[in-house]
Nucleic acid binder design. Structure first.
Lengths: 126, 126
DNA sequence: CGGCATCCGTAATGATACTG
DNA sequence: CAGTATCATTACGGATGCCG
């Protein structure tokens, strides 16, 4: 049976009421979503391609992530009823419109990463 | 003893080599970091204030998150050696410079959230 | 090839009690 | 008030095997 363990408890509690942060982060803030999206940024890819591209992700996680991303409309899934079967994943406009600024932000964060590292050492070494 | 369970395995593997995504997301992409940062956006706050503000976070998680954020230089921690003790957390410039665009991004994502919901229903209901 | 189901170890997380 | 230590629970994540 298809276990629907994604309860989606709608964590929009107290402060979360007016804060869409959770809603979005719960989707793309996980371990693999962003990486997967990024892998698809340049071109559509197949399952095993992504498996290799992302690297240390398992089939299960990739599968789950992919389904998740597709559910939210970030990517599209195209099945070619051939043999052997071929499935291609592609970034949608929504996905792209989200990934681009996100990457910008990440890159900006990277700029002051040195500062972060320093801060980390300063406190971590104590 | 102060458990240092944060192994920081430096997940910058394969594709992650040139991708700073993980480095940043592993820090602020977790369940509470963003929420905590946001709670501090308007003004400096004390521990229990944050505990209430964030809502469904436990003392332990808040504590850990706070330490994490402080380590990375996103927030500052000021202890007032009084009795009863008072500790105030405040957003640093780094924290603010990161939170602001992040929130913008989140909000933009919220705009097409309706679309996401639709997409979700479409696939989830089938 | 794509991908879901199962088993299982690990690690995150909440609740509680305790300290300074 | 501000945390930390401990415990129990659970969810996550990886490996494997099977099926279309």
């Amino acid at each position: 049976m298809t276990e629907r363990k994604d309860a989606m408890p709608e964590k929009t509690d107290g402060p979360g009421a007016g804060c869409p942060i959770r809603g979005v982060l719960d989707r793309i803030g996980d371990q693999w979503s962003l990486l997967t999206l990024e892998a698809l940024e340049t071109e559509k890819k197949r399952f095993n391609e992504l498996l290799r591209e992302v690297g240390d992700i398992s089939k299960q996680m990739l599968s789950k992530t992919l389904r998740h991303l597709e559910q939210d409309g970030y990517i599209s899934r195209t099945v070619y009823p051939e043999v052997p079967p071929r499935v291609e994943y592609e970034l949608t406009e929504l996905g792209r419109s989200f990934l681009t600024p996100m990457k910008t932000l990440i890159q900006r964060a990277e700029q002051n990463h040195p500062e972060i590292i320093r801060s980390r050492l300063r406190h971590g070494a104590e």
